[in-house]
């Protein structure tokens, strides 16, 4: 028996990975809470939510089908994301940890900090995942990319267990060779070129690596969040110059479409935009970017193991 197999925390780590993979995740990594605390802004590290947190477990679930990527942006705004499976895997993991190991554990709400409006998250799930080695920051507004799976959706669990940490990725799949080529020719990578609000800019260095990434988040938010829309509609409705203008603002197609999303909780979002990811060669071309191929590979691996 190896030393690793003798270590109960190593055994727990293996059990955690097996659990989340069985719940639909494809990537899982662990980082110690102190490392996250060192980078997160004051008051937004793991211990702000779970004071005795020792470890952060980051989980990645896959995105949508190839057909969805090829569909219209309208369709993608409804079914492009994978928030549901995150709840299933990460929320379930928090119960699994307490039931199996008796250690306090917490599913990190992937939501805003209500004290500061709607642009400040309780935690940076991106930071957790990056430090845990299941994604690297891209030129597309720092959206994480995975070399094997492309675009993943991330969730986190905090625990008081002292689990053996993983490390960040050794290399970054962004930019891909095709993106470097386009940047050399046109001065823009595909994500920068095709962003509908032109919120992305930045540069590559001589070696074709990221020199600088700049994202006008406030522009991206107009497509991906739209949290100001409700107040904006009400305000504009109040100051509308005519009754017809008021009807259009409060009851028109735009207002109805927005309120449908808010009230039905489609994908738990008000809005989504995937145009930078649609143009990304890593997202669409990674070996296991397609969930179907991903599933086949998973089954094949399980069969070989058996």
């Amino acid at each position: 028996m190896t030393a690793q197999a003798d270590n109960p925390m190593e055994q727990a780590k293996a059990a955690i990975k097996a659990y989340v993979l069985s719940r639909g995740a494809v990537a899982v990594g662990i980082i110690d809470a102190d490392t996250v605390e060192r980078i997160a802004p004051p008051g937004f590290g793991p211990k702000a939510l779970l004071p005795q947190a020792r470890s952060v477990i980051a989980i990645g679930v896959p995105g949508c089908t190839r057909g969805t990527w090829r569909s219209t942006a309208k369709v993608m705004t409804f079914i492009g994301n994978s928030v549901g499976p995150i709840y299933r895997a990460a929320f379930g993991l928090s119960f699994f940890l307490e039931q199996t190991y008796g250690q306090p554990s917490l599913f990190v709400p992937p939501h805003i900090d209500p004290e500061y409006g709607n642009r400040i998250p309780l935690q940076s799930l991106k930071l957790h995942a990056e430090l845990a080695g299941i994604g690297a920051r891209s030129l597309a507004g720092d959206i994480l990319l995975h070399p094997e799976f492309g675009l993943l959706y991330y969730g986190s669990v905090l625990t008081e267990m002292d689990l053996p940490p993983d490390r960040p990725m050794d290399s970054n799949p962004c930019p891909s060779p095709a993106c470097v080529k386009l940047y050399r020719a046109e001065g823009q990578t595909p994500c920068q070129k095709f962003c509908p609000v032109e919120c992305l800019s930045g540069s590559l260095d001589e070696a074709g690596q990221i020199d600088e990434m700049v994202c006008d988040m406030y522009r991206c938010a107009e497509m991906c969040q739209r949290y100001e829309t409700m107040g904006d509609l009400i305000h504009d409705g109040i100051v509308a110059p005519t009754e017809l203008d008021r009807e259009e603002i409060l009851y028109g197609a735009e207002a109805q479409g927005f309120l449908y999303r808010v009230t039905s909780g489609i994908g738990a979002t008000h809005a989504q935009c995937f145009e930078c990811m649609r143009a990304c060669p890593v997202v669409t071309g990674a070996p296991l970017a397609d969930p179907i191929r991903m599933g086949e590979a998973k089954r094949k691996a399980a069969k070989a193991k058996a």
Binding site: G141, I210, E212, M213
Partner: peptide, 8 residues
Amino acid sequence: NIQRRKGD
């Protein structure tokens, strides 16, 4: 609102 990152 405006994110800037140098390197990795």
